[in-house]
Design a binder for these strands. Structure first.
Lengths: 190, 190
DNA sequence: TTGATTATTTGACTCAGGTCAAATTTCCGT
DNA sequence: ACGGAAATTTGACCTGAGTCAAATAATCAA
Protein backbone atom coordinates (compact mmCIF):
# COMPACT_ATOMS: atom_id res chain seq x y z
CA UNK A 1 0.00 0.00 0.00
CA UNK A 2 2.64 2.58 0.88
CA UNK A 3 3.52 3.78 -2.64
CA UNK A 4 -0.10 4.91 -2.75
CA UNK A 5 0.17 6.71 0.56
CA UNK A 6 3.28 8.44 -0.69
CA UNK A 7 1.42 9.59 -3.74
CA UNK A 8 -1.29 11.03 -1.55
CA UNK A 9 1.34 12.68 0.63
CA UNK A 10 2.89 14.29 -2.42
CA UNK A 11 -0.43 15.58 -3.65
CA UNK A 12 -1.12 17.00 -0.21
CA UNK A 13 2.02 19.10 -0.53
CA UNK A 14 0.40 20.95 -3.38
CA UNK A 15 -2.49 21.93 -1.20
CA UNK A 16 -3.01 25.34 0.35
CA UNK A 17 -0.62 25.30 3.35
CA UNK A 18 -3.30 26.65 5.65
CA UNK A 19 -5.66 23.83 4.84
CA UNK A 20 -2.86 21.33 5.20
CA UNK A 21 -2.03 22.80 8.59
CA UNK A 22 -5.63 22.43 9.63
CA UNK A 23 -5.63 18.79 8.57
CA UNK A 24 -2.39 18.03 10.33
CA UNK A 25 -3.49 19.78 13.50
CA UNK A 26 -5.72 16.76 14.00
CA UNK A 27 -2.83 14.28 13.88
CA UNK A 28 -1.59 13.00 17.21
CA UNK A 29 1.66 11.12 17.57
CA UNK A 30 1.51 7.99 19.68
CA UNK A 31 3.85 5.15 20.59
CA UNK A 32 3.16 1.49 21.22
CA UNK A 33 5.33 -1.18 22.76
CA UNK A 34 6.02 -4.37 20.85
CA UNK A 35 3.08 -6.72 21.25
CA UNK A 36 0.58 -4.08 22.31
CA UNK A 37 -2.69 -3.59 20.48
CA UNK A 38 -3.69 -0.45 18.59
CA UNK A 39 -7.14 -1.92 18.21
CA UNK A 40 -8.93 -4.78 19.98
CA UNK A 41 -11.55 -7.04 18.50
CA UNK A 42 -14.93 -5.64 19.56
CA UNK A 43 -13.70 -2.06 19.68
CA UNK A 44 -14.96 0.39 17.10
CA UNK A 45 -12.14 1.73 14.96
CA UNK A 46 -12.34 5.53 14.94
CA UNK A 47 -8.96 6.39 13.50
CA UNK A 48 -6.38 5.76 10.85
CA UNK A 49 -2.92 4.89 12.15
CA UNK A 50 -0.19 6.19 9.87
CA UNK A 51 3.00 4.29 10.66
CA UNK A 52 6.05 6.47 11.29
CA UNK A 53 8.46 3.76 12.35
CA UNK A 54 8.33 0.10 13.32
CA UNK A 55 6.12 -2.72 12.09
CA UNK A 56 2.50 -3.61 12.78
CA UNK A 57 -0.04 -6.06 11.49
CA UNK A 58 -3.74 -6.72 11.18
CA UNK A 59 -4.95 -10.20 12.08
CA UNK A 60 -8.02 -12.16 13.05
CA UNK A 61 -8.60 -15.53 14.65
CA UNK A 62 -10.26 -18.43 12.93
CA UNK A 63 -10.50 -21.91 14.50
CA UNK A 64 -7.71 -21.20 16.99
CA UNK A 65 -5.48 -19.85 14.32
CA UNK A 66 -4.29 -16.34 13.71
CA UNK A 67 -4.56 -15.11 10.14
CA UNK A 68 -2.51 -12.04 9.30
CA UNK A 69 -4.08 -10.01 6.53
CA UNK A 70 -1.91 -6.94 6.38
CA UNK A 71 1.56 -5.94 7.46
CA UNK A 72 2.41 -2.28 7.93
CA UNK A 73 5.74 -0.50 7.60
CA UNK A 74 6.71 3.17 7.36
CA UNK A 75 4.05 5.17 5.51
CA UNK A 76 1.45 2.43 5.61
CA UNK A 77 -1.94 3.10 7.13
CA UNK A 78 -3.33 0.62 9.63
CA UNK A 79 -7.10 0.58 9.97
CA UNK A 80 -9.96 -1.85 10.45
CA UNK A 81 -11.84 -0.73 7.41
CA UNK A 82 -15.02 -2.65 8.04
CA UNK A 83 -15.28 -1.30 11.58
CA UNK A 84 -14.32 2.22 10.59
CA UNK A 85 -16.74 2.47 7.69
CA UNK A 86 -19.68 0.57 9.11
CA UNK A 87 -19.15 1.93 12.62
CA UNK A 88 -19.38 -1.52 14.08
CA UNK A 89 -17.16 -3.54 16.45
CA UNK A 90 -13.96 -4.65 14.77
CA UNK A 91 -13.41 -8.30 13.98
CA UNK A 92 -9.68 -7.81 13.58
CA UNK A 93 -6.80 -6.84 15.83
CA UNK A 94 -4.18 -4.24 15.04
CA UNK A 95 -0.94 -5.16 16.78
CA UNK A 96 2.51 -3.59 17.08
CA UNK A 97 5.14 -6.14 16.02
CA UNK A 98 7.98 -3.92 17.18
CA UNK A 99 8.22 -0.67 19.11
CA UNK A 100 5.92 1.43 17.00
CA UNK A 101 5.45 5.10 16.34
CA UNK A 102 2.24 6.20 14.61
CA UNK A 103 0.23 9.27 13.73
CA UNK A 104 -3.31 8.82 14.94
CA UNK A 105 -5.80 10.46 12.62
CA UNK A 106 -9.11 10.81 14.38
CA UNK A 107 -12.14 10.13 12.24
CA UNK A 108 -14.51 12.80 13.49
CA UNK A 109 -12.01 15.57 13.41
CA UNK A 110 -10.76 14.63 9.96
CA UNK A 111 -14.29 14.27 8.67
CA UNK A 112 -15.07 17.87 9.60
CA UNK A 113 -12.08 19.26 7.77
CA UNK A 114 -12.76 16.97 4.85
CA UNK A 115 -16.31 18.22 4.44
CA UNK A 116 -15.09 21.78 4.53
CA UNK A 117 -12.48 21.41 1.79
CA UNK A 118 -13.24 19.32 -1.30
CA UNK A 119 -9.52 19.01 -2.02
CA UNK A 120 -9.13 17.19 1.28
CA UNK A 121 -12.03 14.89 0.62
CA UNK A 122 -10.55 14.01 -2.74
CA UNK A 123 -7.42 12.75 -1.03
CA UNK A 124 -9.47 10.86 1.51
CA UNK A 125 -11.45 9.24 -1.28
CA UNK A 126 -8.23 8.44 -3.05
CA UNK A 127 -7.04 6.53 -0.02
CA UNK A 128 -10.04 4.23 -0.08
CA UNK A 129 -9.88 3.84 -3.82
CA UNK A 130 -6.33 2.57 -3.56
CA UNK A 131 -7.31 0.35 -0.68
CA UNK A 132 -10.09 -1.22 -2.73
CA UNK A 133 -7.77 -1.74 -5.68
CA UNK A 134 -5.21 -3.36 -3.41
CA UNK A 135 -7.81 -5.76 -2.01
CA UNK A 136 -8.98 -6.71 -5.46
CA UNK A 137 -5.41 -7.58 -6.34
CA UNK A 138 -4.88 -9.62 -3.18
CA UNK A 139 -8.04 -11.57 -3.80
CA UNK A 140 -6.85 -12.36 -7.30
CA UNK A 141 -3.57 -13.61 -5.89
CA UNK A 142 -5.33 -16.06 -3.61
CA UNK A 143 -7.55 -17.23 -6.44
CA UNK A 144 -4.80 -17.86 -8.95
CA UNK A 145 -1.48 -18.55 -7.23
CA UNK A 146 -0.40 -21.61 -5.29
CA UNK A 147 1.52 -21.38 -2.02
CA UNK A 148 4.99 -21.37 -3.59
CA UNK A 149 4.14 -18.71 -6.12
CA UNK A 150 2.53 -16.54 -3.44
CA UNK A 151 5.71 -16.84 -1.42
CA UNK A 152 7.87 -15.85 -4.38
CA UNK A 153 5.59 -12.93 -5.15
CA UNK A 154 5.96 -11.78 -1.56
CA UNK A 155 9.74 -12.06 -1.73
CA UNK A 156 9.66 -9.94 -4.82
CA UNK A 157 7.17 -7.30 -3.82
CA UNK A 158 7.39 -7.14 -0.05
CA UNK A 159 10.91 -8.28 0.82
CA UNK A 160 10.90 -6.44 4.15
CA UNK A 161 8.44 -8.96 5.44
CA UNK A 162 10.90 -11.85 5.44
CA UNK A 163 13.65 -9.64 6.76
CA UNK A 164 11.84 -8.57 9.88
CA UNK A 165 9.18 -11.07 10.80
CA UNK A 166 9.05 -14.55 12.34
CA UNK A 167 7.93 -17.45 10.20
CA UNK A 168 4.70 -17.89 12.13
CA UNK A 169 3.48 -14.52 10.99
CA UNK A 170 4.73 -14.87 7.43
CA UNK A 171 2.95 -18.22 7.12
CA UNK A 172 -0.28 -16.79 8.45
CA UNK A 173 0.06 -13.87 6.01
CA UNK A 174 0.41 -16.29 3.10
CA UNK A 175 -2.42 -18.33 4.59
CA UNK A 176 -0.39 -21.53 4.69
CA UNK A 177 0.89 -23.67 7.54
CA UNK A 178 4.24 -23.15 9.22
CA UNK A 179 5.42 -26.50 7.93
CA UNK A 180 4.48 -25.78 4.35
CA UNK A 181 6.31 -22.47 4.45
CA UNK A 182 9.36 -24.19 5.83
CA UNK A 183 9.25 -26.76 3.02
CA UNK A 184 8.84 -24.07 0.40
CA UNK A 185 11.87 -22.24 1.74
CA UNK A 186 14.13 -25.28 1.75
CA UNK A 187 12.99 -26.20 -1.75
CA UNK A 188 13.80 -22.69 -3.01
CA UNK A 189 17.21 -22.47 -1.39
CA UNK A 190 18.25 -25.90 -2.68
CA UNK B 1 -23.21 -5.20 -3.01
CA UNK B 2 -26.69 -4.02 -3.89
CA UNK B 3 -27.99 -3.34 -0.36
CA UNK B 4 -25.21 -0.77 -0.23
CA UNK B 5 -26.23 0.78 -3.53
CA UNK B 6 -29.79 0.99 -2.28
CA UNK B 7 -28.61 2.82 0.78
CA UNK B 8 -26.77 5.30 -1.38
CA UNK B 9 -29.86 5.67 -3.56
CA UNK B 10 -31.94 6.44 -0.50
CA UNK B 11 -29.50 9.02 0.73
CA UNK B 12 -29.47 10.60 -2.69
CA UNK B 13 -33.21 11.17 -2.37
CA UNK B 14 -32.56 13.52 0.51
CA UNK B 15 -30.35 15.66 -1.67
CA UNK B 16 -31.36 18.98 -3.19
CA UNK B 17 -33.49 17.92 -6.18
CA UNK B 18 -31.65 20.31 -8.46
CA UNK B 19 -28.32 18.75 -7.67
CA UNK B 20 -29.76 15.30 -8.05
CA UNK B 21 -31.15 16.29 -11.43
CA UNK B 22 -27.74 17.53 -12.46
CA UNK B 23 -26.19 14.23 -11.43
CA UNK B 24 -28.78 12.16 -13.21
CA UNK B 25 -28.53 14.24 -16.35
CA UNK B 26 -25.23 12.45 -16.86
CA UNK B 27 -26.76 9.00 -16.79
CA UNK B 28 -27.33 7.32 -20.12
CA UNK B 29 -29.46 4.24 -20.50
CA UNK B 30 -28.00 1.49 -22.63
CA UNK B 31 -28.88 -2.07 -23.58
CA UNK B 32 -26.69 -5.08 -24.24
CA UNK B 33 -27.52 -8.42 -25.80
CA UNK B 34 -26.78 -11.62 -23.91
CA UNK B 35 -23.11 -12.48 -24.30
CA UNK B 36 -21.97 -9.01 -25.34
CA UNK B 37 -19.24 -7.17 -23.50
CA UNK B 38 -19.67 -3.92 -21.60
CA UNK B 39 -15.93 -3.78 -21.20
CA UNK B 40 -13.08 -5.57 -22.98
CA UNK B 41 -9.75 -6.51 -21.51
CA UNK B 42 -7.31 -3.79 -22.55
CA UNK B 43 -9.93 -1.09 -22.67
CA UNK B 44 -9.87 1.67 -20.06
CA UNK B 45 -12.98 1.65 -17.92
CA UNK B 46 -14.44 5.16 -17.88
CA UNK B 47 -17.86 4.48 -16.44
CA UNK B 48 -19.91 2.79 -13.80
CA UNK B 49 -22.67 0.54 -15.10
CA UNK B 50 -25.69 0.53 -12.83
CA UNK B 51 -27.75 -2.54 -13.65
CA UNK B 52 -31.43 -1.87 -14.28
CA UNK B 53 -32.45 -5.35 -15.36
CA UNK B 54 -30.78 -8.58 -16.36
CA UNK B 55 -27.58 -10.21 -15.14
CA UNK B 56 -23.92 -9.46 -15.82
CA UNK B 57 -20.57 -10.59 -14.54
CA UNK B 58 -16.94 -9.59 -14.21
CA UNK B 59 -14.37 -12.22 -15.13
CA UNK B 60 -10.75 -12.67 -16.10
CA UNK B 61 -8.79 -15.46 -17.72
CA UNK B 62 -6.04 -17.40 -16.03
CA UNK B 63 -4.34 -20.43 -17.62
CA UNK B 64 -7.16 -20.95 -20.13
CA UNK B 65 -9.76 -20.71 -17.44
CA UNK B 66 -12.34 -18.04 -16.81
CA UNK B 67 -12.61 -16.85 -13.23
CA UNK B 68 -15.77 -14.94 -12.38
CA UNK B 69 -15.24 -12.45 -9.58
CA UNK B 70 -18.51 -10.61 -9.42
CA UNK B 71 -22.08 -11.19 -10.51
CA UNK B 72 -24.41 -8.26 -10.96
CA UNK B 73 -28.17 -8.07 -10.63
CA UNK B 74 -30.61 -5.18 -10.37
CA UNK B 75 -29.09 -2.24 -8.49
CA UNK B 76 -25.54 -3.59 -8.60
CA UNK B 77 -22.77 -1.52 -10.11
CA UNK B 78 -20.46 -3.16 -12.62
CA UNK B 79 -17.04 -1.58 -12.93
CA UNK B 80 -13.43 -2.55 -13.44
CA UNK B 81 -12.19 -0.74 -10.37
CA UNK B 82 -8.50 -1.10 -11.03
CA UNK B 83 -8.85 0.25 -14.55
CA UNK B 84 -11.21 3.01 -13.53
CA UNK B 85 -9.15 4.25 -10.63
CA UNK B 86 -5.68 3.81 -12.05
CA UNK B 87 -6.74 4.83 -15.54
CA UNK B 88 -5.05 1.83 -17.04
CA UNK B 89 -6.19 -0.94 -19.42
CA UNK B 90 -8.58 -3.33 -17.76
CA UNK B 91 -7.53 -6.88 -17.00
CA UNK B 92 -11.10 -8.02 -16.60
CA UNK B 93 -14.12 -8.36 -18.86
CA UNK B 94 -17.61 -7.16 -18.06
CA UNK B 95 -20.14 -9.35 -19.82
CA UNK B 96 -23.93 -9.43 -20.11
CA UNK B 97 -25.21 -12.85 -19.08
CA UNK B 98 -28.72 -12.06 -20.25
CA UNK B 99 -30.35 -9.23 -22.15
CA UNK B 100 -29.17 -6.35 -20.01
CA UNK B 101 -30.33 -2.83 -19.34
CA UNK B 102 -27.89 -0.47 -17.58
CA UNK B 103 -27.39 3.16 -16.67
CA UNK B 104 -24.00 4.27 -17.88
CA UNK B 105 -22.45 6.81 -15.54
CA UNK B 106 -19.62 8.55 -17.29
CA UNK B 107 -16.57 9.21 -15.15
CA UNK B 108 -15.58 12.67 -16.38
CA UNK B 109 -19.03 14.08 -16.29
CA UNK B 110 -19.75 12.69 -12.85
CA UNK B 111 -16.40 13.86 -11.56
CA UNK B 112 -17.24 17.44 -12.45
CA UNK B 113 -20.54 17.41 -10.62
CA UNK B 114 -18.96 15.63 -7.71
CA UNK B 115 -16.28 18.27 -7.28
CA UNK B 116 -18.91 20.97 -7.36
CA UNK B 117 -21.10 19.49 -4.62
CA UNK B 118 -19.53 17.91 -1.54
CA UNK B 119 -22.75 16.00 -0.82
CA UNK B 120 -22.32 14.23 -4.14
CA UNK B 121 -18.71 13.41 -3.49
CA UNK B 122 -19.66 11.94 -0.14
CA UNK B 123 -21.96 9.48 -1.86
CA UNK B 124 -19.30 8.66 -4.40
CA UNK B 125 -16.82 8.04 -1.61
CA UNK B 126 -19.38 5.91 0.15
CA UNK B 127 -19.63 3.69 -2.91
CA UNK B 128 -15.94 2.92 -2.85
CA UNK B 129 -15.92 2.45 0.88
CA UNK B 130 -18.59 -0.20 0.60
CA UNK B 131 -16.75 -1.76 -2.29
CA UNK B 132 -13.56 -2.02 -0.25
CA UNK B 133 -15.42 -3.51 2.70
CA UNK B 134 -17.05 -6.04 0.41
CA UNK B 135 -13.69 -7.09 -1.00
CA UNK B 136 -12.22 -7.47 2.44
CA UNK B 137 -15.07 -9.78 3.32
CA UNK B 138 -14.68 -11.82 0.14
CA UNK B 139 -10.99 -12.25 0.75
CA UNK B 140 -11.73 -13.49 4.25
CA UNK B 141 -14.17 -16.01 2.82
CA UNK B 142 -11.54 -17.45 0.52
CA UNK B 143 -9.03 -17.59 3.35
CA UNK B 144 -11.25 -19.35 5.84
CA UNK B 145 -13.96 -21.38 4.10
CA UNK B 146 -13.65 -24.61 2.15
CA UNK B 147 -15.47 -25.20 -1.13
CA UNK B 148 -18.61 -26.68 0.41
CA UNK B 149 -18.98 -23.92 2.97
CA UNK B 150 -18.46 -21.27 0.32
CA UNK B 151 -21.19 -22.87 -1.73
CA UNK B 152 -23.57 -22.93 1.22
CA UNK B 153 -22.77 -19.32 2.03
CA UNK B 154 -23.57 -18.39 -1.53
CA UNK B 155 -26.87 -20.27 -1.42
CA UNK B 156 -27.74 -18.36 1.71
CA UNK B 157 -26.61 -14.89 0.73
CA UNK B 158 -26.84 -14.83 -3.05
CA UNK B 159 -29.53 -17.37 -3.92
CA UNK B 160 -30.31 -15.67 -7.23
CA UNK B 161 -27.00 -16.89 -8.53
CA UNK B 162 -27.99 -20.54 -8.58
CA UNK B 163 -31.42 -19.72 -9.90
CA UNK B 164 -30.23 -17.95 -13.00
CA UNK B 165 -26.76 -19.06 -13.92
CA UNK B 166 -25.14 -22.13 -15.49
CA UNK B 167 -22.90 -24.30 -13.35
CA UNK B 168 -19.80 -23.30 -15.29
CA UNK B 169 -20.13 -19.74 -14.09
CA UNK B 170 -21.12 -20.61 -10.55
CA UNK B 171 -18.08 -22.88 -10.24
CA UNK B 172 -15.75 -20.20 -11.54
CA UNK B 173 -17.31 -17.73 -9.10
CA UNK B 174 -16.60 -20.08 -6.20
CA UNK B 175 -13.18 -20.71 -7.71
CA UNK B 176 -13.65 -24.47 -7.84
CA UNK B 177 -13.86 -26.93 -10.72
CA UNK B 178 -17.11 -27.88 -12.40
CA UNK B 179 -16.77 -31.40 -11.16
CA UNK B 180 -16.25 -30.39 -7.57
CA UNK B 181 -19.31 -28.18 -7.65
CA UNK B 182 -21.33 -31.01 -9.09
CA UNK B 183 -20.16 -33.31 -6.30
CA UNK B 184 -20.95 -30.74 -3.64
CA UNK B 185 -24.45 -30.36 -5.00
CA UNK B 186 -25.20 -34.06 -5.07
CA UNK B 187 -23.82 -34.46 -1.55
CA UNK B 188 -26.05 -31.64 -0.27
CA UNK B 189 -29.22 -32.85 -1.95
CA UNK B 190 -28.70 -36.40 -0.72
C1' DT C 1 28.38 -21.62 29.51
C1' DT C 2 24.40 -24.13 30.22
C1' DG C 3 19.94 -25.50 30.53
C1' DA C 4 15.30 -24.25 29.28
C1' DT C 5 12.22 -22.29 26.20
C1' DT C 6 10.87 -21.12 21.65
C1' DA C 7 11.38 -21.30 16.70
C1' DT C 8 12.18 -24.08 12.68
C1' DT C 9 12.72 -28.22 10.07
C1' DT C 10 11.78 -32.97 8.76
C1' DG C 11 9.00 -37.22 8.37
C1' DA C 12 4.85 -39.98 7.78
C1' DC C 13 0.34 -39.84 6.77
C1' DT C 14 -4.32 -37.90 5.22
C1' DC C 15 -7.55 -35.46 2.56
C1' DA C 16 -9.84 -31.72 -0.19
C1' DG C 17 -10.11 -30.69 -4.43
C1' DG C 18 -7.90 -30.94 -9.11
C1' DT C 19 -7.54 -33.52 -13.78
C1' DC C 20 -8.85 -36.51 -17.48
C1' DA C 21 -12.10 -39.50 -19.46
C1' DA C 22 -16.44 -41.51 -20.02
C1' DA C 23 -21.36 -41.67 -19.25
C1' DT C 24 -25.56 -39.42 -18.94
C1' DT C 25 -28.82 -35.78 -19.16
C1' DT C 26 -30.70 -31.52 -20.97
C1' DC C 27 -31.64 -28.45 -24.51
C1' DC C 28 -32.69 -26.96 -29.05
C1' DG C 29 -33.28 -26.48 -34.08
C1' DT C 30 -35.50 -28.50 -37.70
C1' DA D 1 -40.58 -36.04 -32.02
C1' DC D 2 -35.78 -36.76 -33.24
C1' DG D 3 -30.79 -36.18 -33.56
C1' DG D 4 -26.87 -33.73 -32.26
C1' DA D 5 -24.52 -30.47 -29.38
C1' DA D 6 -23.84 -28.71 -24.99
C1' DA D 7 -24.29 -29.11 -20.04
C1' DT D 8 -23.90 -31.93 -16.06
C1' DT D 9 -22.68 -35.96 -13.48
C1' DT D 10 -19.86 -39.90 -12.20
C1' DG D 11 -15.56 -42.58 -11.78
C1' DA D 12 -10.59 -43.31 -11.23
C1' DC D 13 -6.63 -41.33 -10.07
C1' DC D 14 -3.21 -37.66 -8.51
C1' DT D 15 -1.26 -33.92 -5.98
C1' DG D 16 -0.71 -29.69 -3.03
C1' DA D 17 -1.00 -28.62 1.28
C1' DG D 18 -2.69 -29.76 6.07
C1' DT D 19 -1.99 -32.36 10.57
C1' DC D 20 0.42 -34.54 14.17
C1' DA D 21 4.63 -35.86 16.10
C1' DA D 22 9.38 -35.92 16.61
C1' DA D 23 13.96 -33.98 15.79
C1' DT D 24 17.02 -29.92 15.45
C1' DA D 25 18.36 -25.36 15.87
C1' DA D 26 18.27 -20.82 17.75
C1' DT D 27 17.63 -17.67 21.65
C1' DC D 28 17.95 -16.01 26.06
C1' DA D 29 18.01 -15.68 31.21
C1' DA D 30 20.74 -16.71 35.12
Amino acid sequence: MNPYIRRIKELSKKMDPEILAEVEAGFVEKEYAKGSLLLQVGQICTSHFLVQSGVARKFYCHSNKEITTEIYFHDDVAISLDSYIMKKPSDVYLEALSPLKVMVIDYKRFQKVSEKYPEVMILDKMFIEYYAVWFEKKLKEFQTLDATTRYLAMLEKEPRIIQYLPVTIIASYLNISLETLSRIRSKITA
